[in-house]
Write a protein that binds this DNA or RNA. Structure first.
Lengths: 224, 224
DNA sequence: CGATAAATGATAGTAATGCTATCATTTCAG
DNA sequence: CTGAAATGATAGCATTACTATCATTTATCG
């Protein structure tokens, strides 16, 4: 099986980490470490030590640790859209298309061997815990101009399009979609840490219940 | 008019800032500064300088800057619930009650002279930009045990109760409410910075449109 | 194969941050 | 008026997030 790579926005990195051994180790190990330590406790120094390299070398791939996070999360959105494309391409009915999207969004994330160097399960935990740090920063507008949020925006646009096929008069398509994308992660976080804020429980069925919640919210919101 | 104060959880502070001049200045000025600088750029050293005090003195009120943020945002949720109580107490019909809640949640936040030392407009911007930093941290579980998220949880419970009055069979009440509370802020942020992710525009009518979005989503989701 | 450039490693240094600690001074309460 | 509480002043410290420099290894290409 060929190892696929995503073409991510140039500004996310200094040197493309997908093209070298060291780059791939940086991605691989940083996912592991951010997942374990949390983004605040994670440092390039610690990462360098773990991959038997140096801080300086890592800085040759990523301008700073925030851009690395932007990179990883952009990768995640690309991966999600790639999965959504797989599961919607053969579907004609827009309602079924939307259901397929929601299934991909709500499903438990597991290691995808198509991308050897990425542990999607850990990456999903990173997205859950750190997503907001990508855009909730004084630099948003600049990042946005550089196109660093292209992955999320593209996904949002795609799903909004499907919703408008179902009901062309629905006024809030992009708001509903961004709400769904963000809340899917948030509800899983609440299930683990703030259970009073969610109807989900920290059990294996939570992904199914999350799907039910999102499907109910989406289809009822958009009905004419 | 008497100046009201909220009884906030003891663990949020070392010494209660509402009881002293210096404490009130810390609250007042920190809101201003976090709003301007963002939470990352904000430091106790800078704050000390602005209020003509010292770093050490501020540490006598707040264990660290993260607890100060928790304090401010807890205050905000208390204030929101207080406003919701005002606007729902006289209303009998649960549907109207829910509408009143959504109006308070979606409305433009303005300075409330009941609380002289708090600029609610700035505080709302802080909530929009920094809310997630209160719970998206490795320390959540500890904070939660200390009861530091009581304000948000209480609000969520109250509104969930109203929803269950409208439809006792709705399965996802707390999820819907937490989604609404979080998304209300998020959509306003997107309107200002990532407009492709929202149907709102960065204009004065955005609060009305936000209300419409939330009302549509809420009432349709919970209908039997 | 050898020369040259590119990539990486090794090491050092710096300003800022997030504290902690100590002691002196002011303010307040009984 | 006295003692305690609150505040100020100052110093210090480990860590972080970089930047800079130079040496060494590795890949590339004629």
């Amino acid at each position: 099986m060929p190892t696929l790579t995503f073409k991510l926005n140039d500004h996310l990195y200094v040197r493309d980490p997908q093209h070298t051994q060291l780059g791939l180790r940086i991605i691989s190990k940083s996912i592991e470490m951010i997942d374990e330590l949390g983004f605040e406790q994670f440092t390039f120094k610690k990462l360098a030590h773990e991959i038997d390299s140096t801080e300086a070398s890592i800085y040759r791939y990523f301008e700073n640790k925030h851009r690395l996070l932007l990179y990883l999360i952009a990768w995640y959105w690309n991966w999600l859209e790639y999965r959504i494309d797989i599961f919607t391409s053969a579907v004609a009915d827009p309602k079924e298309k939307l259901r397929a999207c929601l299934r991909v969004i709500a499903e438990e994330k597991k290691y995808d061997p198509t991308f050897e160097f990425v542990n999607e399960e850990a990456l999903h935990r990173i997205v859950i815990a750190e997503l907001d740090k990508t855009y909730l920063t004084k630099g948003v507008d600049g990042y946005n101009q550089e196109g660093l949020f292209g992955g999320l925006k593209s996904l949002c646009k795609k799903i909004s399009g499907i919703i408008l096929q179902i009901n062309p008069t629905y006024e809030f398509a992009p708001s509903l979609v961004s709400t769904i994308l963000v809340t899917a992660n948030q509800q899983l976080f609440f299930a683990n840490h703030l259970p009073t804020l969610t109807a989900l429980k920290a059990d294996p069925e939570r992904y199914q219940k999350l799907y039910n919640f999102l499907e109910n919210m989406a289809f009822r919101s958009i009905q004419a």
